[in-house]
Computed example of a mutant assay.
Amino acid sequence: MLILSLQCDTFEYAVKSPTAQAIDLDPGQLDVPNRFENCLFLLVSIDETDGIKQVTRAAKAIVKVVHATGVKQLIINGFAALSGHPADQHRAQEMLRLLGERLAEREPALPVEHMPFGWRKRWIMDVVAGLWAQRSIRT
């Protein structure tokens, strides 16, 4: 598992168009801006060999970044392009779901937003500069 973690003063995304792996989505959600402040945007790539051990390690590392940055929300986006050997869509979706659960267990007061899997999105972000603001996490 490889994660690119970006601390953002503001982050906004809008769902644009489906890929072949897109989950079902209400058409009313297309082109609707979703805006967040003081958040951690996580681009998460699931490898074909990743399992619960990698998910648990990732959650622990992400919580460390949360504590160092003081962010108030997490946004998780599955992003296969970071992996040389990406998991199939079902395994990737399951690992992303488990990652969200592990994060909620470790930090119950911290909201976790999952961006729709398999959809192309437009992003606008104001990324913070700082020691913990831009990190890569490999488990």
Rank of each mutant, 00 (worst) to 15 (best):
P111D: 03
V44Q: 02
L74H: 03
K53Q: 12
P86G: 05
T49V: 14
R35L: 13
A87V: 04
L74G: 01
I52N: 12
V55T: 05
E107H: 06
L82F: 09
S83E: 03
K121S: 09
Q54G: 01
P18G: 04
T69N: 11
L82Q: 02
N38A: 13
N34H: 09
L99P: 00
R102W: 07
F41G: 03
N38T: 06
E101H: 13
Q21A: 15
K121L: 15
N34K: 12
A129R: 09
A22P: 02
V32G: 04
M115Q: 02
A109G: 08
R120Q: 15
L74E: 01
M125P: 06
R122N: 14
W119M: 04
I62V: 15
L131E: 15
F117Y: 08
H67M: 11
I62A: 01
L110I: 14
E101W: 15
V127E: 03
H114C: 11
E48S: 11
L131F: 11
P111A: 14
R122D: 14
A92W: 07
T49P: 02
F36L: 10
A59I: 02
E37A: 15
A20C: 03
N77Q: 12
E37T: 10
G51M: 06
T19Y: 09
I46V: 14
L103R: 00
F36Y: 07
V71Q: 00
V63G: 00
A87M: 08
F117E: 00
P86Q: 11
A80G: 06
L131S: 07
V66E: 00
N38V: 10
G84R: 04
T69P: 04
M95W: 06
H90N: 13
H114V: 13
I62L: 00
A92Y: 05
A20N: 04
A104P: 02
Q73A: 11
L30E: 01
K121D: 01
Q54N: 05
G118W: 10
C39N: 03
M115H: 01
D88G: 08
Q73M: 12
M95N: 04
L110C: 09
G51N: 06
F79N: 02
A92H: 08
T19P: 05
K72H: 15
T49Y: 13
A80K: 09
A61M: 10
H85V: 07
G78K: 06
E48L: 09
Q89A: 11
E48I: 13
L25D: 00
L74W: 07
L98S: 03
K72F: 10
